[in-house]
Design a protein around this nucleic acid. Structure first.
Lengths: 337, 337
DNA sequence: TTGAAAGCGCTAACAT
DNA sequence: ATGTTAGCGCTTTCAA
């Protein structure tokens, strides 16, 4: 029932508390004999170290906080996996919070993280959370941004160049001969969305007639609705290609299209964004703009850990990855991967 | 840089530490005047409570630990979302760990959880972790199992009846006239798999010729390989239906099949398990056996919280949900949702 | 209504 | 190589 403490272990082993602490933390400083007795006592008592006490004493927790927008999106789980990997390698554990589960969203998690005295915070920000992060930083908790830049460059960040990504999508669609393009994306409360849009529009230029569509939800269900709507259009007004600003949406569009009897890509080509794992596994594999999500997580964690290790000499870094076009059947003339 | 403590707040507000503590925890016990001064001091100093200290003093953390096998599987994120929801409602926060990210897997997370003195543990066990859980329980940390039962009934559990689920899948395939069925699933190190298999075989009986295939990985890539293999078979030896023991696998099978020119469901019908969100959104929507994943998370958390609240009078509960067959295009004669 | 003081479990000087 | 001790920040009797 009750948990044994170092004191109990010391008593049973017939040594002092500091000797027990030493076998735990600096085994070198202790005689083999004492070490052995301590170990025996530990297993006999089922002793488990109390990290709260340790943390209180040490002043740091060896914990990183990671706040993502929505853990159900495979893009974020990839990022999270990268973060955990890098964190582990450096001896940190990570507290994972998904903002969607809190009424107070990411802000609530930042509070929790700070209460728990995490050594640093990684965040995929959705709302306006930069002011809050300023507070944390001032009180000694550094943060790095994922998938979004800090215009003031006060925080390090790791992101992908979504303007380039949008351009990649547009150019690919033009390359395969499509001239009547639609953009379907979320409204512009997130920088990611507006960047993808900007890049897309810049690359399209005056080369093609373009329809623009924005909705608040950007999920699969939403995509289905768009797919059906397109299918109902007279053939002359129908787009011959769609750029959906994320893969969940794109997958939905394909479903809506095919359910209504249209062929993808012959009637309408579809390209998505993120290259989540399900895009390759879909019955009509989806062409997509890939972000190096896992790598982004790794890099972000490494940046953060570097800042934690040496807060004085640390300088803010802005890492921007290049997106990559992954061509699959949903935009290919013929079937194939 | 440095973090203000209650002592600093007390000094600035001209009151004692206990008064500060009181305005934080029992605002009723304090004069409005004092409360006001304390609040001012708190914001002025940017005071943030140190949960490590609080926890050390209180003896509990208000934290729940949740260990899942693989955070990339939407089934688990659904469960996690349910857990977080119920936890929040009861004033708990949750530490989410995905075993895949640790070399030492779930066992490593249990150590972390116990070091952090979580008040209880929720776990989707893969390996043999029951002995370890016995240890935790003995030391005062209760646990509840998700998606798996404890044969000895020493732990509460929340799961779905996978034998019934396997039967549902088999009967549906027989109902639509298929007689040459394949089962594709993982090896039987997890109870889930063997249950699905048992239920499937019992329902098939001698009604159909059946091929059985087992592999260690049960993911989309694996499914693609199976799909292609089936397509290469002479038509006479080809199964006319496949039961894949989870949706990722099933989605891959469909991809392999269609890439090789076969039609789903006409040539081969495919049914999966879990009904993850991408199954409905796939270009050929996938028929699947649904587990109430979100609800399972909610129930598990509630059970655990009940046990934490009253460890004495608590009795072990085993909740088993019924799975539900969701029919979609991948087994339907005609196209449609 | 407020304050003084003890103690949760641990680590790190410091002393032996 | 080992032990003694102070103190991390908080909550909570107990007294005033």
């Amino acid at each position: 029932m009750s948990t044994a403490s170092i004191k109990d272990v010391a008593a049973l082993a017939g040594v002092s508390m500091s000797t027990v602490s030493n076998v735990l933390n600096r085994p070198g400083r202790v005689s083999v004999d004492a070490a052995e007795r301590v170990q025996r006592a530990i297993t006999q008592l089922g002793f488990v170290r109390n990290d709260a006490a340790r943390q209180l004493r040490l002043g740091h927790s060896n914990l990183l906080g990671l706040a993502v927008i929505n853990i159900s999106n495979p893009f974020f789980t990839d990022v999270a996996t990268g973060v955990e990997e890098a964190a582990r390698a450096a001896g940190y554990s990570v507290l994972l919070g998904n903002s969607a589960s809190r009424p107070d969203g990411e802000s609530g998690f930042l509070d929790l993280f700070e209460n728990q005295r995490v050594d640093g915070v990684l965040i995929v920000p959705s709302g306006d959370v930069l002011n809050k992060l300023d507070g944390l930083r001032r009180r000694g908790t550094p943060a790095v941004l994922i998938d979004r830049l800090d215009d003031r460059h006060t925080f390090s960040s790791v992101s992908t160049d979504d303007v380039v990504g949008g351009g990649l999508a547009a150019r690919h669609l033009l390359d395969i001969g499509r001239r009547h393009l639609w953009f379907i994306g979320g409204s512009f409360d997130t920088k990611q969305m507006s960047d993808r849009y900007d890049g897309f529009m810049a690359a399209v230029g005056t080369a093609a007639i373009t329809g623009l569509h924005f909705s608040d939800r950007v999920d699969a269900e939403d995509g289905v609705v768009y797919g059906r709507r397109i299918a109902e259009l007279p053939a002359a007004e129908r787009p011959d290609a769609v750029f959906a600003a994320n893969d969940m949406l794109a997958l939905g569009v394909i479903q809506g299209l095919t359910a209504a009897g249209l062929n993808v890509p012959n009637d309408v080509a579809v390209i998505g964004y993120d290259d989540i794992i399900f895009s390759a596994a879909a019955a009509i594999p989806l062409t997509s703009v890939r972000q190096p999500s896992h790598q982004m997580g790794v890099t972000a964690a490494e940046l953060l850990i570097g800042e934690i290790a040496d807060p004085e000499n640390f300088t803010t870094r802005t890492v921007v990855y290049e997106p990559e076009l992954i061509v699959r059947s949903s935009t290919a003339g013929t079937r194939g991967n």
